[in-house]
Design a protein around this nucleic acid. Structure first.
Lengths: 206, 206
DNA sequence: CTAGACTTCAAACGGCTGTTTGAAAATTTT
DNA sequence: AAAATTTTCAAACAGCCGTTTGAAGTCTAG
């Protein structure tokens, strides 16, 4: 999509920006680099998005709208069931991200962009994410609380916070474990998700 | 230290750079911002460090040399003992970082800088860190392997990778949990370390 | 086919970037 | 105290930054 002429200027800019933001960060990736990668005129960014900041927010919006919806759908599927476990709840949170990262070209890149948003102490970006997508985490927290009645509120929040950290770090592929040469990207990521769920469930239950 | 005239130009630059790198990232923090915060002439960075890249590496070196040494000292204390547990091993890894983050002015800031190094996909920086400090993680991995003989090598590495992610994220204070108003910085961080060890030990043992 | 709206384009704006320079100042050595 | 060395300084370098402009090009509705 990044430079495929069959996609619109808007989409090509978003794709190129996503890749360069993941690779170099929001500040270091310049609009000239983005528009060159998208094979688009420099002024197109300000024409279609208004500013670099708006472009950054659109990069998040494009992926997070769908990701949040899928997570909440999965949550609705499992939350009420009597047989729900920590593992199925974690799966409901992780699988949509896993699918996104395997899905279309550029999906895997977005998880790195998302992790960068945590590293950036940028308060505007944090406010944007919290305001627009904070309710997803809140809904999941309620579901986890039902499964972990022995934990008081403070204890639960500490554990969820640590769990989110492990998920963020792993899904962004920040770790040292590289994909083995004979292994497909899909197999690698599914393997990672499996370990992630196992580890995190144990940590929450401890 | 950042602008205290009693410190040397070199130290003032390192202190200011650390703060600004943590706050804005390596690319977005400019040498003009750094030298202004350090109350030092712009050219001093290139005179004392040669380049911005060298300055970045020196910011890491200053803290990591001591941090690595303390971690290995603690590891040596507990590794051979028969009564070693996962918790004492994790404590040996985390406590030096905790002390650093509570210690002198700017120590807590450095953990954020370190976490940024993970978010940056910068291969030069990764190579620098792996080359100079990778042996610390390796030594700890050996000690963990002895305590977790039921895990094969691949399983162990996955879990350690996830554990490092949780530690990195938490120590950098990326999470949503804020220090409570009545709570001291020290109490907050010690509380975090306690939860971190408990959670991670359970994940490793699962 | 033409009028109007939408999109693309090259060029330029002021401002900030890392780095270099050579002279001035401060410090250390003789 | 003089000479030599180290450190600081203001100024300038080329180059990239996000954004704006107004004209040229493309598309669509009447």
């Amino acid at each position: 999509m990044r430079d495929n002429p069959q996609f619109s200027t808007r989409q090509r800019i978003l794709g190129a920006a996503e890749e360069l933001f993941a690779e170099r960060g929001f500040a270091a990736a310049s609009l000239r680099q983005v528009t060159a990668a998208a094979k688009v005129n420099l002024a197109a960014v300000n024409y279609h998005f208004g500013s670099k900041n708006n472009l950054i927010e659109e990069v998040f919006r494009r992926r997070l709208d769908e990701l949040s919806q899928r997570r909440l759908e999965r949550l609705a599927d499992v939350a009420q069931s009597e047989s729900t476990t920590l593992e199925t709840l974690l799966d409901a949170f992780i699988t949509p991200a896993l699918e996104l990262s395997l899905d279309r070209e550029g999906g895997s890149v977005f998880m790195r962009v998302l992790a960068r948003a945590f590293a950036e102490h940028n308060s505007n970006l944090r406010r944007f994410l919290s305001k627009n997508y904070g309710y997803v985490l809140k809904d999941f927290a309620v579901a986890f609380a039902r499964l972990l009645p022995q934990l008081d509120k403070e204890e639960l929040y500490w554990r969820l916070d640590i769990a989110v950290g492990a998920l963020t770090y792993a899904m962004a592929d920040f770790g040292m474990i590289q994909r083995r040469s004979g292994e497909s990207e899909r197999a690698h990521r599914e393997n990672m998700a499996k370990h992630l769920i196992h580890f995190t469930a144990a940590g929450l239950r401890a």
